[in-house]
Simulated assay, not measured.
Amino acid sequence: MVADSKGKSDISFAGTFAASAFAACFAEICTIPLDTAKVRLQLQKSAVAGDGMAMPKYKGMLGTVSTIAREEGLAALWKGIVPGLHRQCVYGGLRIGLYEPVKNLYVGSDFVGDVPLTKKILAALTTGAIGITVANPTDLVKVRLQAEGKLPAGVPRRYSGALNAYSTILRQEGVGALWTGIGPNIARNAIINAAELASYDQVKETILKIPGFTDNVVTHLFAGLGAGFFAVCIGSPVDVVKSRMMGDSTYKNTLDCFIKTLKNDGPLAFYKGFIPNFGRLGSWNVIMFLTLEQAKKFVRSLESSRA
């Protein structure tokens, strides 16, 4: 479970943090090719060629994955995996690890019964904002590495790797640049975290009240799919703005990016990459929550044996 909706967690914060970080990293490794495809589709802008529109380079999730693999090699699909794992260790551990104690803080120590959905959403918004504020530099580096496609012969890559990206950004752009896009990133991750954790919590709680369902893999699977669906439906617009701001430094601020995207590419641009985004978030949530449930069982047994 993400959390016990009727009481306090039966494992320590350190144990929850470790289980959450492990589950998030495992899901990241499995699904980052879809995330790379999503970022490329989101950053792809409408371009004019002569008197008509140029054909877009990337078309759909599978087409984008195929194009990247063909032009840049299979390894390119895992671009950004190092900062991606950095991000999941920090962000994944904090947003999930803090969810239960923050939820208990909002309902009060004397609360009895099912936690209201509003409190679950508020708790997830809070932990998502805290987690990504700390982890924003890792997100920035991940997006910049994913955004770089195949370069002409003789043209050097902007960054040789994750560590080089961190140091180059610090040296050339300053410390503050590591928090580029922090506004839309907080909005995006707080909203998506609320959609994921609160919906997983609520869907699981609802399923367990149906006769015949128990706290098992099938329940976790349905709850994980529900979490991914709600997350992508609610968070796609801010996700597009976040990716564009991190991938292109010409935008002045969040509002400037939103207005230019709307003006130049239309409202549907905010749902660019929707299918790969759902493929990514849907599969990511299923893998992450299934892994998390098993990891927490392991931690629970480990802590019990040491008690």
Rank of each mutant, 00 (worst) to 15 (best):
L85M: 15
L85A: 09
H86L: 15
Q88K: 12
Q88P: 01
C89G: 06
V90D: 02
V90S: 07
G93H: 07
G93V: 10
G97E: 05
L98N: 02
Y99C: 10
Y99S: 09
E100H: 10
E100Y: 06
P101L: 08
V102S: 03
L105Y: 12
L105N: 00
Y106E: 00
Y106W: 10
V107C: 11
V107T: 13
V107K: 14
V107H: 05
G108F: 07
G108V: 11
S109E: 11
D110I: 04
F111R: 04
V112P: 05
V112I: 13
D114H: 12
V115P: 01
P116T: 03
P116C: 10
L117F: 15
K119R: 14
K120M: 12
K120F: 00
K120D: 06
L122G: 10
L122Q: 12
L122H: 02
A124M: 02
A124P: 00
L125E: 00
L125H: 04
T126L: 11
T127P: 03
A129W: 04
G131C: 07
G131P: 06
I132A: 08
I132P: 01
I132N: 03
T133S: 15
V134C: 10
A135Q: 06
A135S: 14
N136G: 03
P137M: 08
T138M: 13
T138Q: 05
D139I: 06
D139M: 10
V141R: 02
V141H: 05
K142H: 07
V143C: 03
V143D: 01
R144L: 14
L145R: 03
Q146D: 02
Q146T: 00
A147F: 07
G149V: 04
L151K: 11
L151T: 02
P152G: 05
A153R: 12
A153M: 07
V155L: 10
V155D: 02
P156R: 11
R157W: 01
R158K: 15
R158P: 01
G161K: 09
A162D: 02
A162I: 08
L163H: 12
L163I: 13
L163A: 12
N164E: 13
Y166F: 15
S167T: 15
I169A: 08
I169P: 04
I169H: 07
L170P: 01
R171P: 00
R171S: 15
E173D: 15
E173F: 11
G174C: 08
V175N: 06
A177R: 09
A177D: 04
A177H: 08
L178T: 04
W179C: 06
T180K: 15
G181C: 07
I182H: 07
I182S: 06
G183I: 14
P184H: 09
P184C: 08
I186G: 03
I186N: 01
N189G: 09
N189Y: 12
N189P: 02
A190D: 06
I192S: 13
E196I: 11
L197P: 00
L197A: 08
A198F: 09
S199D: 04
S199A: 13
Y200W: 13
Y200V: 03
Y200G: 10
D201Y: 09
D201Q: 14
Q202D: 09
V203E: 03
V203Y: 12
E205A: 14
E205Q: 14
